[in-house]
Amino acid sequence: MYRLNRFLRQLPAQILLLVFTLIWSYPFIWIISSSFKSQSEMFLGGINIIPKEPTLDNFVRAWDLANFYQYFFNSVIVTASVVLLVLVLTSMAGYALGRGSMPGKKLIMTMLVMSMFLPKGFTILPLFELIVGLGFNNTLMGVILAESGPSKIVSILLFVGYFASLPKEMEESATIDGAGYFRMFFSIMLPLSKPILGTVTIFSFIGAWNAFFVPLTFTLSKPSLRTLGVGMYNFFGTNSVDWTGLAAGAVMSVVPIIIVFLFLQRYFIEGLAGSIKG
């Protein structure tokens, strides 16, 4: 009875929100519904949400003929490598900078923070030159390095802040128990930093999965290395009338990220919310 009352009182707000969210989600509803429609149904028009004769043709066509299998695996490899690389680099650096007071620590911290604000110019060109110089042009390695290399400063600072906040006694007692530097980091400190690991993972996952500019630039002359975003763009460029196929491609690129997000959304929301308090 109480719940019903509450619901009735909320009714205006509920209706407002429901309409708003439905309109807001329409593009996603369209993607999913169109990916199951036949091409002829799409051409005959109509904005029915439920397909008349649901079919999986679009997925088969996008996967095989439009090379989405390749794009998908490229995206998986790039994203997994970027996340791993960023986690290793930022957590180790964050630990070293957060604990103890090594000479030069201040200098490094100042340099990192300054680089966030200094005008960067158009850094993709030197980055491109560097990747070519390293011999990684037209390889996935080039995309991975260019994507994980720059601007992970916020992640480093998150780890620095977290490790600095842990009590000193923890290290002391671990040292007494005979743990060395590496043991200390990998089996005590790193597992403790789970919230930061979660935040950095989800942010770099989303960043790498959705990347467009870097993979576009680095795969201009090598189509087989395209990631999903770039592949979708090229599919649209060469076959702009295959709307149902494009919808299937969109499902393949959007659904995985939503699933990952559902698992890690707590860390993501907390990370975002933290950025306005910090």
Binding site: T21, N210, L228, A250, V254, I257, F261
Partner: peptide, 16 residues
């Protein structure tokens, strides 16, 4: 639901 567009690939959204 209001947050889903944020995490979707911008290039894909552009095409759609």
């Amino acid at each position: 639901l209001l947050f889903v567009p944020v995490i979707s690939t911008t290039a894909v959204i552009g095409v759609i």
